[in-house]
Design a protein around this nucleic acid. Structure first.
Length: 154
DNA sequence: GCCAACGTTGGC
DNA sequence: GCCAACGTTGGC
């Protein structure tokens, strides 16, 4: 079992949106490192911290669970999509994704400044200045520390 | 293979 | 809305 952090802009797709839909193919990742983590690193049942970016303050709002194998991101073949990639082909798809399902909403929001302050979470990639990776691994210890800050127990 | 230019992300 | 940091592209 591995642990992850996934970023989303809440104006675009929030944890509440995931809660409403229940399941969401994690489309639109167009960064190779993030893709590799999602395609090669994730496994069904893994848990991910759900992080809201591009708001003030950003932070972790809850949990999602990985619930599929990796498969091609359909938006890469859709000419009308914002995520359309004309250089990718169905024979050899460049962008792979997995489905995420809703797991939990934290009662207490854990902001980025809090993550930076807490010694158990300060080493997370998301705490580094200029961190842009939208899918990133976190250690079990970091995952548990964030849950603790959120007052969350499974 | 280098690196400047560009577009994007994301904190503030 | 600003701008620093980052990843990618493309000329050479």
């Amino acid at each position: 079992m591995n642990y992850w952090l996934v970023k989303s802009e809440p104006d675009d797709f929030s944890l509440d949106d995931l809660k409403k839909k229940g399941r969401e193919p994690w489309t639109g990742v167009r960064n190779y490192q993030a893709r590799n983590f999602m395609r090669d690193g994730m496994a069904p049942g893994d848990l991910a911290l759900f992080y809201h970016s591009n708001i003030a303050p950003p932070g972790v709002v809850g949990l999602a669970k990985v619930d599929s194998d990796a498969y091609p991101d359909p938006t890469q073949f859709d000419a009308k999509s914002h995520y359309y990639d004309p250089t990718s082909s169905p024979d050899n798809p460049r962008w792979m994704l997995r489905d995420l399902i809703y797991e939990a909403s934290f009662k207490r929001f854990v902001s980025l400044p809090e993550l930076r302050e807490c010694k158990d979470t300060a080493g997370m990639r998301v705490c580094q200045k200029g961190a842009r990776l939208s899918v990133q691994p976190v250690t079990e210890a970091e995952f548990k520390a964030v849950c603790k800050l959120a007052g969350y127990t499974a």
